[in-house]
Amino acid sequence: MDDSVQVCCTRCRNVFRDRARRVQAGYSRQCPCCEVVLFFEETSLDKNITRALTSARGLRKVLREMEAAGPRKAKAVPAGRRSY
């Protein structure tokens, strides 16, 4: 599962991805295109920032639930692909 969320820059409208574990209240990130600093705060009036925060919160919840479900089952290796 991909652990990143889309963030839309408030200045240049460029869309880039950042890890959901990083995108939290108090986090700041530079836009890779226009280099403006984006501040991720819960009280932000910018819809792009609040959308990124809520999607990151939801993704972190899903990731925690997957981790709590237990270890993943090992994938079966096809007979022709084994290396000894």
Rank of each mutant, 00 (worst) to 15 (best):
I49Q: 00
F16A: 07
K47Q: 12
I49S: 05
R13Y: 06
A69N: 08
A68T: 07
R17W: 08
D18I: 07
G70K: 08
A52L: 06
E35T: 09
F40I: 00
C33F: 09
N14C: 01
E35Q: 14
L38D: 03
R21D: 15
A56R: 05
R57K: 11
C9I: 03
G26K: 09
Q24L: 14
E42V: 01
V23S: 05
R72Q: 14
C8A: 08
M66E: 14
A25V: 12
C33A: 13
A69D: 11
E35M: 09
L45I: 06
T50V: 10
R29Q: 13
A68Q: 13
C31E: 01
V62I: 14
R51A: 15
R64M: 12
Q24A: 14
D46A: 07
K61F: 10
R51D: 14
R72T: 13
V15L: 00
G70C: 08
A69C: 02
C9D: 05
D18W: 07
S44P: 01
A74L: 12
R17S: 14
D18K: 09
Q30W: 00
A52H: 04
V37H: 01
Y27A: 11
C33T: 11
E67M: 12
K73L: 13
R17F: 10
L53R: 05
Y27V: 04
R51T: 13
K61L: 10
C31Q: 07
V15H: 03
R72A: 15
R17I: 02
S44N: 08
R19Q: 13
M66Q: 15
E41I: 00
V15A: 04
C34D: 11
R64Q: 14
C31T: 04
P71Y: 00
R13F: 08
V23H: 05
E42F: 01
T50W: 01
I49M: 01
R19I: 06
